[in-house]
Amino acid sequence: MLAYIVRRVLYAIPILIGVNLLTFTLFFVVNTPDDMARMQLGIKRVTPEAIVKWKAERGYDKPLVYNERSQGVRALTDTIFFEKSVRLFAFDFGRSDNGDDISWQIRNRMVPSLALALPVFVLGLYVTVSLALFQVLFRGTWLDVWGVILCVAMMSISSLFYIIGGQFVVSKLWRLVPISGYGEGIDVVRFLLLPVVVGVIGNIGANTRWYRTIFLEEIGRDYVRTARAKGLAETAVLFRHVLRNALIPILTGAVVVIPLLFMGSLIAESFFGIPGLGSYTIDAINAQDFAIVRAMVFLGSVLYIVGLILTDISYTLVDPRIRFE
């Protein structure tokens, strides 16, 4: 068990190295720092001097992977690759292209991101699993049929429309909550209420349908027939037998995204003006601030891998077949 987890953690290292090399190639080889400087400065202001200055200010004036002018280890460390990519392994994200401390930003923005993402995740899971169970309990009736139709219709609507529609109706027409913004203390609830509800509703269609399929697959199994032959009521069969087994794929599918909740939601945060990591990323993309995007890619990969490891652990917790191997 422990050896298994240690092996998974070790396996993460080559993956992170791969991610690192990939991002390095993408950001520094496909386009050279000169290209980026030209892009950032804009066509009008591009002069050779301006480019040199721009690169020097941001530390992009070093060689990519090997510095011929330095001695010994410095030949490898005094390079863009070491300064901008290898340092990420120590979670040293450096400064963004416009000069602020990325690590500081991440620390400060994680909380608002989590304040939105966590309730959406927990409530969403609860609501969709309940709805799917409800449909399955009434399977074959018109409730189920219309439930499925509603799910397909709901999953055919872009998440953008859920947000725009929610803001328009709830905030603008009914004036129940502010359209966007973020506050301190208990005030936060006022700002988060709408984004959370919208986030939950936006995921109902696809997830309910997916969970319903899992439940139905489980219901066709032999042990369910055994449970019915014991004289158990349909609800007992569903909650004690089917739910326990179906939760294995559902929970483990959900666990992998838990660490990524820290990253927040790009769209919702920028629409609702929540100062989280999602809106930070969006702003960086719009400002073409590659340093931030690079940091986010690395952070996201780390969190995803943590999610994978958590998934493995959660498997061993919920599935006795794996726990006792």
Binding site: R221, D222, Y223, R225, G231, N245
Partner: peptide, 24 residues
């Protein structure tokens, strides 16, 4: 009928490996 099932009439099935709930 549920009183009868498992009470007055019980049943055992062909495939013991799939007829028991794996997680209980």
């Amino acid at each position: 009928m549920r009183e009868v099932r498992g009470g007055r009439i019980a049943m055992i099935f062909q495939e013991p490996s799939t007829s028991l709930n794996p997680v209980l």
